[in-house]
C-alpha cells in the first residue's frame, strides 16, 4: 500500500528546472569548464591489441618545451585484490587499473600506455607522439570461439575460474542457475525449440565524449570536475587507482551528455589527477570520439543458445 493515494502535482508536466540553461547553451558539460592555469593531457595508446610492453622511453616527450608532465602505468600503485563498488557496478581493482592505463601488458587496441600534459592540446598531441614504446607483439583473439580453442593466446596467465582446469584459459566466469527439474521437463515436452541467437558488441553512443579537468593543490586536495553518472563512484575509483585518500578527492559532476551505463566508471579522471600532481597545474582531458568507440564501454557481445521445451503452456 502506498503512503500517498492522491496527488496534486505529481503526474503533471512542468518545464524542467535545468531546461533554460540547456536550450540557451549555458549548461556546462564535461568539456565546458576551464580552470585557471590549466594544461592539457593527451593519452598515448597502443597500436596493438595484444602485446607485452618491453620499455617506455618518455625522455624526448618530457624534454619538449611546453611539456610539464609525463606518466605511465608505473605511476599508478600496484592494484591489490580489493573490489570496488557494489552490485552491478562492482569491479576488481586489478581489472579497473589496467583498463585505465596498462601496467606491462596490452590486452586491447588503443589501450592507454602513457600520457603527457602540455600547455596546449596540440603540443600535448605532438609530445605524445614522441613517447617511444617498445612492444613484443602477441597473437590476437577477438571472438569467443577462438578464445576458448586449445591454441588460443591466453590473455591472463594468472586467472583460473572456479571449477576449471589448472591451466589458465580465457574463460572468465561460468555460472549456472536451475529451478525445478529441467531434464525431466525436456523428456515430457510436447515441443522442443532449439535455436541460437547472437547479438554483436554495440556502444552506448552517448553524444558527449568523456571529459574532465583536475586540480591538485599544495596540500594534496584534489578538485575534479567531470561528466559522469556517479561522481561518488568517480571519487572512490580515482582514489583507489591513485592511492589518494577518498577524503581528499572532491568530485563535482558536470552536466552529462548521455551515459546509458557507459559513464559509471573512470577512464580519464585518475590520469588527469596524476598529471596534475606531477605538473602542479590543473589538467584538462577530453577523449577523442574515435577513442570513445575504441576504448570505452561497449555492451556485451552475446551468443545465446535456447533449448526450450514448453509443455502445457496453453491451459
Amino acid at each position: 500500500m502506498n503512503a500517498y493515494q492522491e496527488f496534486s502535482i505529481i503526474g503533471s508536466r512542468p518545464v524542467r528546472p535545468d531546461g533554460l540553461d540547456k536550450v540557451t547553451g549555458r549548461a556546462r558539460y564535461g568539456a565546458d569548464l576551464n580552470m585557471q592555469g590549466q594544461i592539457y593531457g593527451h593519452i598515448v595508446r597502443s597500436p596493438h591489441a595484444h602485446a607485452i610492453i618491453e620499455s617506455i622511453d618518455t625522455s624526448q616527450a618530457l624534454a619538449m618545451e611546453g611539456v610539464l608532465a609525463v606518466m605511465t602505468g608505473a605511476d599508478l600503485p600496484e592494484p591489490g585484490d580489493s573490489v570496488l563498488g557494489g552490485g552491478e557496478g562492482a569491479i576488481a581493482l586489478k581489472d579497473l587499473s589496467p583498463m585505465v592505463m596498462s601496467q606491462g601488458k596490452v590486452l586491447f587496441h588503443a589501450q592507454a600506455v602513457a600520457a603527457v600534459a602540455a600547455t596546449s592540446p596540440e603540443l600535448a598531441a605532438q609530445a605524445a607522439a614522441l613517447v617511444a614504446v617498445s612492444y613484443q607483439v602477441l597473437p590476437v583473439v577477438t571472438n569467443m570461439e577462438d578464445a576458448l580453442s586449445a591454441d588460443a593466446p591466453i590473455l591472463h596467465e594468472d586467472r583460473f575460474p572456479d571449477g576449471f582446469p589448472e591451466e589458465p584459459t580465457n574463460l572468465a566466469a561460468h555460472i549456472s542457475l536451475e529451478v525445478g527439474e529441467p531434464d525431466a521437463a525436456f523428456e515430457r515436452a510436447d515441443v522442443v525449440i532449439e535455436q541460437t541467437y547472437s547479438v554483436p558488441m554495440c556502444h552506448q553512443g552517448y553524444i558527449e565524449p568523456h571529459a574532465c579537468v583536475a586540480r591538485v593543490d599544495a596540500a594534496g586536495q584534489v578538485d575534479l570536475w567531470c561528466s559522469t553518472q556517479g561522481h561518488f563512484v568517480v571519487a572512490q575509483f580515482t582514489a583507489a587507482l591513485t592511492g589518494i585518500d577518498v577524503g581528499k578527492v572532491k568530485v563535482t559532476a558536470s552536466e552529462i551528455g548521455g551515459g546509458f551505463g557507459g559513464k559509471t566508471t573512470v577512464y580519464l579522471e585518475p590520469l588527469a589527477v596524476v598529471l596534475a600532481q606531477k605538473s602542479g597545474r590543473p589538467v584538462k582531458m577530453i577523449m577523442d570520439r574515435g577513442d570513445v568507440f575504441r576504448v570505452t564501454g561497449p555492451r556485451r557481445v552475446r551468443k545465446h543458445a535456447l533449448n526450450w521445451a514448453p509443455r502445457k503452456m496453453v491451459n
Binding site: A49, H50, E88, G89, D95, M99, L107, F108, H109, A110, Q111, V140, V141, T142, N143, M144, A147, L148, L155, H156, N170, L171, A172, M201, G261, G262, T264, T265, R294, V295, T296, G297, P298, R299, R300, V301
Partner: peptide
C-alpha cells in the same frame, strides 16, 4: 570469455 577487445561495460 576474455578476448582482445575493450572491457565491456554496463
Amino acid at each position: 570469455v576474455y578476448t582482445n577487445k575493450p572491457k565491456i561495460h554496463a
